[in-house]
Each structure stands twice: as C-alpha cells, then as structure tokens.
Design a protein around this nucleic acid. Sequence first.
DNA 1: CGCCGAATGTTACCACCGTCAACACTCCAC
DNA 2: GTGGAGTGTTGACGGTGGTAACATTCGGCG
Lengths: 215, 215
Amino acid sequence: MNTVASAAPYHHGDLRRALLDSATAILAETGRWDFSLREVARRAGVSHAASYRHFTDKEALIAAVALTGCETLHTCMTAAIDGAKGAVGTLRAIGQAYIGFGVANPALYRLMFGQALPSIEGLPPAVLAVLTEARAVLRGVILAGARAGAFAIDPEDEQEVSVAVVTAWSLVHGFTLLTIDRVVDREVRPQVIDALAARVADRLIIGLLPIQGRR
Amino acid sequence: MNTVASAAPYHHGDLRRALLDSATAILAETGRWDFSLREVARRAGVSHAASYRHFTDKEALIAAVALTGCETLHTCMTAAIDGAKGAVGTLRAIGQAYIGFGVANPALYRLMFGQALPSIEGLPPAVLAVLTEARAVLRGVILAGARAGAFAIDPEDEQEVSVAVVTAWSLVHGFTLLTIDRVVDREVRPQVIDALAARVADRLIIGLLPIQGRR
DNA sequence: CGCCGAATGTTACCACCGTCAACACTCCAC
DNA sequence: GTGGAGTGTTGACGGTGGTAACATTCGGCG
C-alpha cells in the first residue's frame, strides 16, 4: 500500500481505454492488426490476461478499435456537411471528408472495411448502426439534390436514387482504398491527393448533373 | 518399402500445388486467411513442417494464393475484352468481368486487395506485374475510346486519361468490395448483382460520353 | 470504522502455432 | 550401385490465445 503518486496502482483506472489506445497505436505504426494481445497488454503496462476483464476476445478488442474508427468517420462526414452549401458542394464535401479520413488513417480504414466486415452479419451492432446512418446521410444529400433539380435523378424513383448512392459510395470507397494501397500513386503522382480526388469526383458528378448543367 | 499402389508414397508428387489448393479451399470456406499452416498441411495429408520445403513462410504461402487470384482475375479481364465491341462495350465488359470475379471469389478478392497490399511495396514482384498489366489494359481501352471520340477525353492529355482510369478502377473496386461486404445488399436487393452493376456503370459512363451521346 | 462482495489485475497453466534443426526416405545422374 | 539433391518427418523451442485460481482494491452497508 503506497500512497506515493508515482507508484503504479494495482488498479489501472481506465484500462479499457488504455488497451484500445495501445491497439490503435500499434495498428497505426505497423499497419497490421495481427498483433498479439499480449503485446497490447505489455504496451499498456499490464499483464496479458487483464484484457479479458474488458474484452471477451481478441476479436472483440479489434472490433472495438474498428468501432471508434467508424464513429470518427461519421463525425468527419457530418462535420463536412455542416460547412457545405448546395447539393453538389455537399456531395463533394462528404467525399473529401471520407477520403481524407481514409488517407489519414490508412490502417484503421482497412481494418474497418477489410476485417471487421467479413460479410456484414456478425458485426457489433454499434458498427452496423454507424454504417447504416452514414449511408442514410449520403442518401439524404442525393435525395435533396434530386428534389432541388441539381441532379438528373427522379427523387420518386427509389431504385434510381439507390443506384446513385451506391455509385457515389463505391467510387469514394474504391478511390480511398486504391490510394491507401498506393495503386493510385503509380498511375499519377499528384502533389496532393485532394486534387486528384476532386477530378475523380467531377467525373461522377458530371454523370449526375442535368444536361444543361454539364461542362 | 511397399509397392502396393494404394499405399501413400513418401513423396507427394506436387505438394506445392496441393498446399495451395488446401489453403485456397480453406479461404473459400471460412472467408479468413488466418488459418494455421498446420491445418493446411493436415488437409494436404502431410506433416506440419513439409510446407517449408515449398514456401519460406506462412506469408509466402498466402502471397502465392493471392498471386493465383491475380492471375485468374487478369485472365477474366482479357477474356472479357476479346468478346466485346466498341469502347463503351469493352469498358462495360471489363467492369463486369472484374465485379463477377470478386463476387464469385469474395474471400480471395479481399485477400488480394486487403492483406496482400499493405502498401504496394513488399509485394511479390509477380503480383505487382499482374496489377500493373491490368491497369495498362484498362488504360488502353480508355485511350482507344478517347481516340475514337467515344469518350469526352483528350487522348493527348495524360492527366485526363489517368483520372478516367482511376475513376473507373475506383468505381469497380469499390462496388465489388461493398457488394462482397453485403453493404450494397441492404441498399437495394437486386435479383442479380449484374443489373445493379450495369446501372452503376452507366452513371460512370454517362460522365465519360461526349455531350451529344448522352442519354 | 470494519467488513464483505464485486470488480479488476496477476500468476500459472493448457493446447496450439510458426519455425528450425536433425533425421529418413526417394529419385536421378554418374 | 552409389551418392548427393530433393522432399517429407519428427521433435523441440519460444510465443500466443484463452481459462482458472488467486490477489488486490474499491465501494457500499452494518
């Protein structure tokens, strides 16, 4: 029993958070999520079995990391919407935020969409909820644009709207991954990813604009 | 020493191939590539250390599996080109072949673009070569279309062509992954993926067409 | 204050894994 | 035939995920 502040207390305080931070740090440093649970524990300065008081599983820990990523991504997207004007501008802002998050956190992004999703079932419901809402946000933007006549989409046609949603999401998701994986880098090596992303987005948006608005 | 044919011979014959097949089978069945090397060996009816005569590493085995996937994908793409006419038709055919491969081999696809690519460096050069050629094929198609006036792209503008290549690849890659991960399924549940893919592709292609060709 | 149960962390242990080294069998070239 | 090269086996090592039994601390209740 030592009341000196510098002595490590038996109880950690917030070990759950500390473990998450350690795991996230390792993920960011190595780009891999096949680290050992024991290494995470070592890093948090705790014995290897302590994590089982906070996570049922190694997989559960990793899922929790992925969840924080989903939440951050969602925050980025909604923040981007707030600062944007017009349907096209909003769409662009969302895409930019999305890609920006992925490029800034490549390993986390790959974890979220690579391992955490071995088919969407069996996911922590929390992750699923965030993804669902993210899609709803995108759909809302496109729908609003369609209603305002900014896009050549019939807002009453569910299918057509869905196609646009899937198209936009696919483009942004694919671009993010190709950029992370450096496949894009070898095609064009842009000063800034943003510039390329903007031009790629243009190609999509041109396809969405009504005839008179194009080019 | 037993000359009876039914006795298992000491030498396997083509163990390398057998190990690859086992690993591929496990991958397809479970959707995961964190299987144990020992399980692969068991499946091939061989002792746990035998694989080290054919693969330096567990990672090497997995990379080899990914390589076969890359080759198959490349084959699918080139085959699709042969049967297609016109720039738009060819582009559509490539996309369809690409998506079809991904959907038919979800785990393999995810392995190829999820784990085998922790940034493109450090990849087996063979994989890299296949990817590079795949991109060249796509670029060739788009360039040809641009030269023929089928797309609103200046064939002399390297950047513009590259943007189109990245856009097309991003869209197809993203769509494939979202479909594999069942994210798309919850947006629209199409009778066939093909129909959705075609409509998504249309959105891209409309953006590529010259003005007079649209809609 | 003192005590007790719940929460949290530790140690000890298990089966299994990746990898290596030493050994066994088989095939082919001479 | 014989001797190496190639291929498969056995056995061992340290590390890992996971569990159980034990230790420590905290918070509430007398």
